[in-house]
């Protein structure tokens, strides 16, 4: 599993975080001076877990109705804001600045 240190090495990383299966924040790291806090990251973790569940429900429904596979199991979820994106996979995630974000690299780092 990815280490938070490695995630913070990604270009434009604002925060790296780990959460439980039910979405509670377990640990985190923040870049100096970023406008994030533990409470926000805990909320963000819950948002990510909720959306991974929704996406899993949709993937199951879609695959069984259309016969088009390749969506389940859901590997990762990304939330794009105006200036930042949160990329999560499994129980870890990283918040990246959009203008520097390398999403492929983030998924790769999260999978390591």
């Amino acid at each position: 599993m990815a280490e938070l240190n490695n995630l913070m090495d990604l270009d434009g990383a604002v925060a790296a975080f780990e959460f439980s299966d039910s979405g509670e924040l377990v640990s985190h790291q923040l870049a100096d001076g970023c406008d994030m806090n533990e409470q926000t990251l805990d909320m963000l973790s819950h948002v990510c877990v909720a959306n991974l569940s929704i996406a899993t429900m949709q993937a199951r429904g879609w695959e069984s109705l259309t016969g088009m596979g390749g969506f389940y199991p859901i590997g990762g979820f990304t939330l794009m804001g105006m200036d930042w994106s949160a990329v999560v996979q499994g129980t870890k995630g990283v918040v990246l600045e959009n203008n520097k974000a390398d999403y492929e690299a983030a998924y790769q780092a999260l999978a390591e």
């Binding site: 993937a59 105006m82 200036d83």
Partner: peptide
């Protein structure tokens, strides 16, 4: 929850990745 300017707000989009 964010203290000042949180770059995740407003939400603009999302992506999911399957195999």
């Amino acid at each position: 929850f964010c203290t000042q300017d949180c770059g995740l707000v407003p939400g603009k989009g999302w992506a999911v990745r399957g195999p």
